[in-house]
Every structure is written in C-alpha cells, then in structure tokens.
C-alpha cells in the first residue's frame, strides 16, 4: 500500500500554512516528518487524518483518493489526548470500539496490550493518577489497539525513561515490520535514524528536502575527511589551513576535490598511526539544521 500526498495546500485566514506538500510513504516503512515548530507538520497530519480539509491537493492510497471508511488509522497526537478522569480500560475499549472493534474484542485486545506493556496493574486507574511515561504507553495502546493500516506517531517517545522508550520502540518496530504505513514525527533525530528509511524535512509549509536518508546523505559533497588519530598535532601541522580540530577531538580535513579522497586517505594512513579515517557524511542533525533551519542558521553551518 502506498500513501501519497500531492501538492497539499492549506491557509488559515490569510496565512498560508502549507504551500504544496508532496511526499509518499509505503507499507512496511516509516517516513520521518521533520521540521521546526510551526513548519506545518501537524497541519499536514491533521489533513491526512481528515480533521479538516486542505484548500487543494490530494491524498491518495494506491493511486486512488483515500476512503476514510476503508482505511483504518491509529494516531498518537503530540498533545496527549486521554480523559483524565475515566478508567484506563474504559477509555481504551471506547477508542477501540469507535475504530470499529466489537466490545468483546476491544476488551480482550486492551488487556493484552496492557499486559504486554506491563500496565495491567493500572487497568482500573485513571490517567491523572499515572506518570507521564505510563500515560504515554496508554496513548500508544490507543493508537495501535485496533491494528490500523496507517499509524501516525507525533513525538511518540518524548518524556519516556530509557527502559520505557525501549519498550515502545519495540512496539513501533513491530508495527513497521507488520507492514503498516508509519508516519513518524519527532525532534529526536536518533529515533528517526533508527526507524525511518525515508524522511521529508519541512520548512515554512514546503518540503525543503525529501527522500531516502542514505541518498540525502550521499548528495552532500564528499570533500572532507574525518580522522581520529594519536598524531593529530602532526596532522594539523602538515595540513595547515585545510585541517581543523573538532570539539570531540577528531580532525576535519578539506579535500580539494571529491576524486582525491581515496588517495588522500591512503596517504594519511601510511604516514600516521590512525584510529579511524572516513569521508565525512552529514548526520541527520546536520541535514535538519540545513534544511529546516532559517537562512541564518544555514549560513552558519556551511
């Protein structure tokens, strides 16, 4: 199954929030939605979820306009949405029933999920009595309990301790493996790198870059080497202006042209004792800062 968003536009009043968003996501893969606050991620998600309509543009499933009666989706909103004073089991069953499950199946599934995420003891508690992390688990259960085709997760791991984060990561990974379309929005780059093969970076209502993470990384010029070495002082001395020491102790060396990178690596490894040497590849954070940041920030990184 392929979810396609084509040239989506949306204005609130005179403010144009989305200026033609286009991307696609496939079953069994997670698509990372990146962008600074206010870039239009949540608006995009809400249009996909049919909370409101876009001014123009299309949302297609396998090439046909999406039919909300046929496609099921699970949604974990960034701002958590649980009834603070209603029993957890009642809420989970309610949300699952609204998504089309029978009462009996919903109850069964809710109990299974609670057990799996070690939450059974909170079954009859109210969300207001739970810690933030535990509320988050409940929220995730309400997103996946009905086994949806499309899963939209907005900051799913914020506020979790590492053990809980790991537990939820397993759940998300499993959903991807099961063949769901997963849209994943987060500011925590490590999670995006872990789950997503594809990303889009949004800026001011536009997709500033999109595609496979590897391809994006490869599109950067391979004109810098990253070296870790005991002889860093000697290297800095020899390569003078083209070399610079980084905060983490590694050395960057600029290469005049990409073609020379293998020769230069060979040269350096022969001359000095080297712990590691590689052609510099941007991290996701670098990509984010370049494509999601404003022009000023872009200038600084370059």
């Amino acid at each position: 199954m392929i979810l396609e968003v084509r040239d989506l536009r949306k204005s609130f009043g005179t403010k144009e929030v989305l200026k033609g968003i286009t991307f696609s996501a496939e079953s069994g893969e997670a698509l990372g939605l990146l962008g600074r606050n206010g870039a239009g991620k949540t608006t995009t998600i809400r249009i996909i979820l049919d909370v409101f309509k876009g001014n123009s543009g299309e949302i297609l499933i396998d090439g046909k306009p999406i039919n909300y009666d046929e496609i099921t989706y699970g949604y974990l909103p960034e701002e958590r949405g649980l009834y603070p004073k209603k029993k957890i089991i009642d809420q989970l069953v309610y949300f699952a029933e609204l998504k089309g499950m029978s009462g009996k199946n919903a109850r069964k599934a809710a109990d299974q999920w609670l057990e799996r995420l070690e939450m059974s003891e909170y079954r009859n508690k109210k969300p207001q009595e739970l810690s933030k992390g535990n509320q988050q688990k409940i929220q995730l259960i309400s997103a996946v309990i009905h086994n949806p085709d499309v899963l939209i997760l907005d900051e799913p791991f914020s506020g979790l301790d590492p053990v809980n984060a790991l537990m939820l990561q397993k759940v998300v990974q499993e959903e991807i493996t099961k063949g769901k379309i997963v849209l994943f929005s987060s500011h925590q780059m490590n999670y995006i790198e872990e789950f997503c093969n594809n990303i889009i970076v949004m800026r001011d209502g536009e997709v500033s870059v999109g595609g496979r993470i590897d391809d994006i990384k490869d599109s950067y010029p391979k004109d810098r080497l990253v070296i870790r070495s005991m002889d860093s002082d000697k290297i800095l001395e020899e390569y003078g202006d083209t070399a610079s020491k980084q905060a983490d102790g590694s050395i960057f060396i600029s290469i005049p042209s990409e073609e020379q990178r293998f020769a230069m690596m060979a040269e350096i490894t022969q001359k000095y004792s080297i712990d590691s040497i590689s052609v510099w590849r941007p991290s996701l954070l670098d990509i984010f800062v370049e494509y999601a940041g404003d022009d000023e920030a872009k200038g600084e990184t370059k």
Binding site: Y75, P77, E79, R80, Y83, L98
Partner: peptide, 16 residues
C-alpha cells in the same frame, strides 16, 4: 470542554 482541554477531542474526531 474537558475533551478539548485534554486534547482527547483530537483523537475523537479522527475516530468518529
């Protein structure tokens, strides 16, 4: 108002 302030509304209108 509770559904709105707790943002449960966001889940509800995407479900029903």
């Amino acid at each position: 108002a509770t559904e709105k302030s707790t943002r449960a509304m966001e889940l509800l209108i995407t479900s029903v």
